[in-house]
Amino acid sequence: MSILHDEGQQAIATESRRVLEARISKDDLLPLLETSGRYHEGFWTTAKEQGWTALALPEAYGGLDLGLVELGLIAHQAGRSLSGAPFLTSGFGAAKAIELLGTDAQKQRWLPGLASGEAIGAVAFAAGADPLPARPDLTCASGHIEGRARSVTAGLAADVAIVLADEAGTPVLALVDLAGVERSAIDSFDNSRLIADLRFAGTPAEVIATGPAAHGAALQILALQAVVTAHEQTGGAEALMEIARDYAVTRKAFGQPIGAFQSIKHRIAELYGLVELARANCIHAAARADQADFITAAAAARLSATEAYDTAARDCVQIHGGIGVTWEIGLHLHMRRSRSLALEQGNSLFWEDILVDRLAGEAA
């Protein structure tokens, strides 16, 4: 596939940007930082109304039967506008796990709700330095899960979770109904992510993959989520680049716009390069979702998008100077989100290892 979108895909991007810019504002998002357990309901209502939750799911279960490319376009615009809920990514990850590995009964039970957005999904192994340990912390025995899943994004609101557990020394991937599961909210610097620890105490679970297949399936789900997150990061980086550019051509110092100084113009030019590299990697990865090299492409997209968003968040604040760190201007919203997204779906060290291992295998 070309790294350019076709007319239909461009229309999706244009319309989603128009809708989100009309419905999300900085003033809606700032109060969420000071409260645990709340998300921006306006964003999630919009996602459901627009059919974004159903975009990449099968038509037989209420989906629109499009793909990762189209979902990535929505995530990109969500990143630009700082969407105040993580469910677009977490619900997609849980739904794809059920679609790819679940039984017909499991699909009938969960996919229609996830497609409509009435049910919320979470993937409970997507955080930390090593989201796919050889020996998972959770244990599974006789169809029941024990232990604590830590720092689960969307965990406070999720109805169903996909977990990686250990069953007598063998990894298993399991589907867990979260009704009645104890949740401990984690007060973070980006509270709208609804991060929570989930405590399982003999919680019923349905195993959907076991052995090496469980690890492979978990990595596939993690990579699918990572591509969606990379699009969101790229959208945030693009927005910050434009904010920095606009400020640099209006703010004056020593009688001229600060954008005339090399220290400023070069930074903005470097941001442009990082954003475009991340964008190309994201489109490439999304287009390779059903190909053998998808994990490699996903790792590259994840790494380049993380670098772009982190750099843009830092440089945009510095270009603004003192006003850049004030509560009212809201640049810290992007700074917080860039750090949150850098840790979700595994950090950069994890994806660097994945990328190196894949490239070394291809070269062997």
Rank of each mutant, 00 (worst) to 15 (best):
H320L: 14
D290P: 00
Q318D: 12
Q318Y: 02
H266M: 07
W327A: 15
I323G: 06
K265N: 13
D310W: 00
H284Q: 09
V325N: 08
R314N: 12
G324R: 03
G324N: 05
K265F: 06
E328N: 12
V325L: 11
Q262R: 15
I295L: 12
T296W: 00
R302P: 06
A292K: 13
C282L: 04
D315K: 02
V317L: 13
R288K: 09
E328G: 13
A285F: 12
V317K: 13
E328D: 15
L274A: 06
A285C: 11
Q262M: 14
R314T: 15
I295M: 11
R314I: 14
L274N: 00
E270C: 05
Q318I: 08
T326K: 09
A300W: 04
D315V: 06
Q318G: 01
A285R: 01
I319G: 07
E276Q: 14
L271E: 06
L303A: 08
R302D: 04
G322T: 03
E307G: 03
G322C: 02
A286P: 02
V275S: 10
L274Q: 00
R279E: 15
I268Y: 02
R279N: 15
D290Y: 04
A289W: 07
E276M: 14
N281I: 10
T296I: 00
A297M: 10
A308G: 06
R279Y: 15
A289M: 12
G321I: 08
S304E: 07
I283V: 15
E307P: 00
A305W: 02
A292D: 14
A298H: 13
R288G: 05
G330V: 08
T326F: 07
L303Q: 07
C282G: 06
G321E: 02
R288A: 15
V325C: 08
I264A: 10
S304I: 03
H320P: 08
Q291H: 10
Y272V: 05
G324Q: 03
K265C: 10
C282H: 02
H266N: 04
C282W: 06
Y309R: 00
T306V: 15
Y272H: 07
Y272F: 05
A280M: 11
A269G: 02
T326L: 11
I323S: 11
R267T: 00
H266R: 11
I283Y: 03
G324Y: 03
E270L: 09
T326G: 07
R314Q: 14
A269F: 02
G321P: 04
V317R: 15
A312T: 04
S304V: 05
T296A: 08
C316R: 08
R267S: 06
R302L: 04
G330H: 05
T311V: 09
F294N: 14
A301S: 10
Q262C: 13
A289H: 14
A286I: 01
G322I: 01
N281D: 15
Y272W: 01
H266G: 04
G330M: 04
G273T: 02
A280N: 09
G322Y: 07
G324K: 04
Q291A: 15
T296G: 04
A313D: 11
L271F: 13
I323Y: 00
L277Q: 15
A308R: 08
T311D: 01
T326Q: 11
A292R: 14
A278Y: 05
V325M: 10
G330A: 08
I268H: 01
E276K: 11
E270T: 09
A300L: 10
A285S: 03
A312R: 01
A292C: 05
E307S: 06
H266T: 07
E307Y: 03
